[in-house]
Write a protein that binds this DNA or RNA. Structure first.
Lengths: 340, 340
DNA sequence: ACGATTTACTTTATCGTTTTCATCGAAAAA
DNA sequence: TTTTTCGATGAAAACGATAAAGTAAATCGT
């Protein structure tokens, strides 16, 4: 196995200095076209690749961005939420199209992630992805800000801090999907998902939900709100609690698709007909949603657009350009889990 | 925003030389415990992080592995196959637990990927993931081998080359799932998925399928084999071709779950009852499989195990240890899409 | 008590680039 | 002819760590 060649080897063969080689390989106009192509030919022949470590060290940039995925530590060996998986896919694609490498990393919210990737020069910037619980998360965001780290968050806007976010308009989504069912004639709405600021996106969806109810002179019954995490199992259990509560209801708004899927399972086990007796809706539009029985009516978050926005925004930040928080409009996806 | 501090800053404050700092931070036993902790304290206080580029450059290793995901260029804006997404998740986790960073990259089989990541010292090794079409893929594998690049493939064993692979035992999986339906009493089996070596894993499954048929004195009817790619749409179309062919059949073995899902859609649109008239099975056990109607009986590939195996094997290779190709045993997952 | 280890550092070389600064011949301007 | 200006290149200084080699003081065995 041959030694890996360096720019000096090429310089030697081309009969020029190493610095000329470096310039030629980066298509610098400072080097004569003839020598440039000669050098490039030799480089190709030797199968030469610039050493990224050396290059990054000198130029102080890595052309790499890091994606930090936050997951609830409690369910760490279960599958990753398909919604985030889908985001991951689109972010990967978006990065590639911009010529950036993507470093993917899982983090537990509790860890010392805040000062790792950009500080060690492994990445030029960070994308933070996950359902954010703000308990001590926010304090770390502030630290990132202090350090001048470039980063973009996925999620609800943080009003009181100069943090750039890209997120879905959860409030509007929650409102519109609820209005949709209201128009179908349902009266008693249960909401499955957290109604507290610990889960900001769920909370926004809940607020939109309530807003829609009020706008149509329907009462918001707190006894019909049940907490649930973003898992199928959690949705199943919340629905069981709902059913056992004895409250009557004819519609369920789930804070995310996985919850909705779990809820449908619980309902069907208890003999409820969907959508005849109960209309069910979710949020996210994960792949599973179109294959459930009945197919789930939900709110689509455009992950492709989101991924592109996330990396474009981050890149702007890195390049010192202006950037601002963006909300992606939600989109209703009507399927069969609702009826009048 | 303060300058980022270097090991010299720490050395200055601690009153020692820079190299002592370097050692202290790596917990070298060569430095006195007292000074070591003093240095580490200062480092923490200054929020110092070692510069990975400098460190990697000097030590010639990156503690990073690259995951190359191959996707069919034709469907590049559609969603990524959930099976690979799931693998991605488990590989990410496995890497993290070993203290390695993960660089994720999409590649088109046609591109010049073979010499990029390890040659440029961005990664210490490669994981190759994707349904492999061997046309000019193999030639690149040989190049990787020549270069001494450390890599592991996901997929069927490559018999004639010293390449380490981790894969599912597709043959056995295909055989067992087919036997399962045979025992249920079905007689006319259609197979949806490529039966050629261009799609090695599908081909293996097909061979297992045929083997099972023969072992039970059933005929393999070539007119009941239809090509399909690994997408839902492709499965749908293959099933339509099957239906329109006029051949009679009472069971469909799909080469992967997505194909099965598409096939079920086609069957139901044409009024077939699943599983009463037609039994359907898939392969992979993607998340969707448990939510289809009826829930899909399939062969589970344990992605968690696969991810761990992939990174452990690669790490062995990197560290110069012995490693060998591994086959993961498939596991039947009985659900409701088959009946006697 | 005296050379031989050990312990705890410091010095110096090195990794392979990018980048600044200096150079040098030739064409253009004076 | 002499001086400028440029276009093209080379030499050398970073970049920020790690690793090998060197040094002084403390510890040791006999």
């Amino acid at each position: 196995m041959k030694e890996k060649s360096t720019s000096f080897d090429i310089a030697y063969r081309a009969g020029v200095s190493q610095s000329t080689v470096s310039r030629a390989l980066r298509n610098s106009p400072l080097v004569n076209a003839a020598t440039r192509s000669k050098i490039q030919a030799i480089a190709k022949e030797l199968n030469y690749k610039v050493d990224k470590n050396a290059s990054n060290l000198r130029s102080q940039q890595s052309d790499t961005i890091a994606l930090l995925l936050f997951e609830d530590p409690t369910n760490d060996d279960s599958a990753i939420n398909p919604f985030f998986l889908s985001m991951l896919g689109s972010i990967t694609r978006a990065c590639a199209s911009k010529g950036y490498d993507l470093l993917v990393s899982f983090q537990q919210a509790s860890e010392d992630w805040h000062a790792d990737f950009e500080d060690s020069n492994k990445a030029d910037g960070l994308i933070l992805l996950g359902y954010g619980d703000y308990v001590d998360y926010e304090e770390k965001l502030v630290k990132l800000l202090d350090q001048g780290t470039h980063f973009v968050r996925w999620g609800a806007e943080v009003k009181h801090l100069p943090i750039i976010s890209v997120g879905c308009d959860n409030f509007t989504g929650g409102k519109e999907i609820t209005e949709h069912i209201i128009k179908l004639g349902r009266k008693s709405f249960a909401f499955l998902g957290s109604a507290s600021s610990h889960a900001p996106e769920f909370f926004e969806r809940y607020k939109g939900h309530c807003q829609a109810l009020k706008a149509h002179q329907l009462t918001v019954n707190p006894a019909l709100q049940f907490n649930a995490m973003y898992t199928e199992e959690s949705g199943y259990q919340a629905a069981c609690r709902l059913i056992n509560s004895g409250e009557s209801f004819d519609a369920i708004c789930a804070a995310c698709d996985l919850i909705a899927v779990g809820a449908m399972r619980a309902l069907q086990e208890h003999g409820f007909k969907i959508p005849e007796q109960v209309s069910v809706v979710g949020f996210d539009d994960i792949a599973i949603a179109s294959f459930t029985f009945p197919p789930l009516t939900t709110v689509k978050q455009d992950t492709k657009l989101a991924g592109e926005l996330l990396v474009n925004t981050l890149l702007s930040l890195i390049h010192g350009e202006e950037a601002s928080t963006t909300l992606i409009p939600p989109e209703l996806v009507m399927r069969k889990s609702c009826a009048s």
